[in-house]
Design a binder for these strands. Sequence first.
DNA 1: ATCCAGGATGTAT
DNA 2: ATACATCATGGA
Length: 293
Amino acid sequence: METGSIPVASLPGGFDLQSTVESGQSYLWRREDGKMYETTHAYGESAWYYTVVEEEVVRARQRDGQIEWQATTDAEPLLFDLLRLDDDLDAIVESTPDDPLVESAYEEYRGMRIVRDPFFPCLISFICSAQMRVGRIYGMQTALAREFGDEIEFDGRIYHQFPTPEQLATATEDDLRGLNLGYRAPYVRKTAELIASGAASAEDVRGKEYEDARDAVQVFVGVGDKVADCVLLFSLDYLEAVPLDTWIQSAIEEHYPHCERGSYAKTSRAIREQFGGEYAGYAQTYVFHHLRS
DNA sequence: ATCCAGGATGTAT
DNA sequence: ATACATCATGGA
């Protein structure tokens, strides 16, 4: 086993592992002790988390201004990638127009970063997120990995990879309903098939201008405007994407009523501008976490 | 029991 | 383009 540490306290804007992986952006990280959402912030600060990516288990915890990690290979470049440790968080916060809500959210969770999830798992988890509570979305992804993903052994324990598109495409709708995916079951199956067959891929999206990209993600089944924005923001580097979920909608009603324009596309443009444009998704994610906590 | 959760789809207008 | 019913599941 390889180990290492990353001095994150000195990064611009700092870093907060717990907020980053437990704020409902990524459903691909778990706490090693299984106590997600059950303990205080103070305890979660030094808890071990893990994710399974690129056929590898990566563990990480935050202690004394460092990210300590354990993996089978050098995981530092991977962690920089997954946790966006290269983002200049100070500059991003600076670029956001001051308003009381955004400011208090940034203050409370400063150090939280947007994640860069692998595309397919991100896509599937947000297809599953429709009309679901955050806590249950984690459970659905855990069940998918347990039932359809390959096993990996690490440090004497068995972990499960997220299933490949091919593996999920072989699942029947009834299989998936059996995991309590409900009406999302056919969406997940059809989307997995689209990718497994080569009919569509992330490469059809990358490089497109933001709103074109948002349309492009919607070729996948079970993906509308909101889920498309989540995938753009949490996987495909579109930091201007602002997912308009129920929490942000109510924030618009209460705090930014002038941004309500009657349609997703128009309201999206208005709130994106309200949140400073280029990094509006950062403000959105802080506000979401702030309101939900 | 009724309502709601990080909404999307199919159909009718 | 927009309006509406429908879709599973479980926790409050």
